[in-house]
Design a protein around this nucleic acid. Structure first.
Lengths: 67, 67
DNA sequence: AAGAAATGTGAAATATTTTTAACTTACAGG
DNA sequence: CCTGTAAGTTAAAAATATTTCACATTTCTT
């Protein structure tokens, strides 16, 4: 049940800093760090807010994998 | 920032009871009740698990509205 | 109408995410 | 080297989601 995410890819392609993305979605920079690297399960709202920034779907941005 | 959801619609169309859907996504029946009626912000995993049951996207199932 | 089954409510306990804060590492430019 | 900026880490506190439990209400069936 690990979380794979493309947040970092999309963020860098958009030329955004972690702190800038954080501000756009009303979250803390550390939350973005944890999300990009870590394996934790954000709230639906946060996931959708981030997806909206990049104009992609949640499904495109996040994937839960077995094990 | 209220949450609009079609979980109830999809669940009923699929002929599932709340308790059956809950079991399919490894949650409690009450969690489904709160989600269908309430305005609370589930985890991404729960949202995606439910979307998978109905073969729809998260975006189709959930929408955050202003106010 | 009565009984069963499904849904709803709400409060307290628990689990998890998110914030806060302080510090570290990496790296680029002057 | 220094200095500044971006990214990473970690622990504890705060906020919020989820469970648990016990009961209320609606809905369906007979």
């Amino acid at each position: 049940m690990a979380l794979k995410t493309k947040v970092k890819e999309y963020r860098e392609n958009a030329g955004l800093k972690q702190s800038e993305l954080a501000e756009l979605v009303h979250a803390r920079r550390e939350t973005i760090v944890h999300l990009e690297n870590g394996k934790y399960n954000p709230s639906l709202k946060l996931a959708m807010d981030i997806a909206k920034v990049f104009h992609v779907t949640v499904e495109d941005l996040f994937e839960f994998t077995e094990n």
